[in-house]
């Protein structure tokens, strides 16, 4: 994922004539990693390949960054990969630490990501699964049958991002009121604050303020 940041002062359309508005900064996320991955990641990748013959068809890329392993999985194969990771003795990732949604609106076709951190208590290891779905078809298979604890986490990700988890027993809003429109943590949803009132002036809400970026 590559990100282009323009301008210095956050809110656009201000009367800023300092010239910092023309600043362009490009940053990119770490890309796919090459073997050897280091520490126990090679073992995990090998075991998964052994247990899952269609490794390359299911896993889109493997990223090793900052001492953590991320497996990008295709959403159609997510359930099988998850079940293998949980059941195979050499992998045994018994605990799933929830689902975290991330919204990348610039990543056309793969805007919504769901991240599953996994923990293996038997082998004392941690990895991460990442799945992506486009905005136009925000469906990801539910992993409640693999790890029951994902029930509420998937509801929260649905509530906040609009990702629909197919196969979830009761996918409803959990944090916002039941009839709330929109999905708050998406990037196209405003922060929703109100202007702050002081004696003699008001300051705009945090997402509309000029600030040094």
């Amino acid at each position: 994922m590559s990100d282009v940041n323009k301008g210095m002062f956050g809110a656009a359309g201000t009367g800023d004539t300092s010239g910092y508005g023309g600043l362009v900064r490009v940053s990119s996320s770490p890309g796919s990693s090459e073997r050897p991955y280091g520490s126990y990641f090679d073992e995990v990748a090998d075991e998964l390949e052994r247990a899952f013959p269609d490794f390359n068809g299911a896993i889109e890329k493997v990223i090793v960054d900052r001492g953590e392993l991320t497996l990008h999985v295709k959403r159609e194969r997510l359930f099988d990969v998850a079940k293998t990771l949980r059941d195979k003795d050499s992998l045994r990732f018994e605990v799933c630490l929830g689902v975290s949604g991330v919204h990348y609106p610039e990543d056309k076709g793969r805007e919504l990501h769901a991240v599953y951190p996994l923990l293996s208590m038997t082998h004392n290891r941690r990895i991460r699964l990442e799945v992506s779905a486009p905005d136009s078809d925000p469906h990801i298979p539910s992993l409640v049958e693999v790890w029951a604890g994902n029930n509420w986490h998937e509801r929260e990700t649905f509530d906040m991002f609009g990702i629909i988890f197919d196969g979830h027993p009761a996918l409803t809003r959990i944090l916002m009121p039941d009839d709330w429109p929109g999905h708050p943590q998406r990037k196209d949803y405003p922060l929703g604050g109100i202007p702050v009132e002081y004696i003699g002036a008001t300051t705009p809400a945090p997402d509309e303020r000029r600030s040094y970026r």
Binding site: G193, I194, V196
Partner: peptide, 12 residues
């Protein structure tokens, strides 16, 4: 006044 949470979720 809504405190530090000037956002969609908190009544100001």
């Amino acid at each position: 006044s809504g405190g530090m949470f000037n956002n969609y979720a908190i009544v100001q």
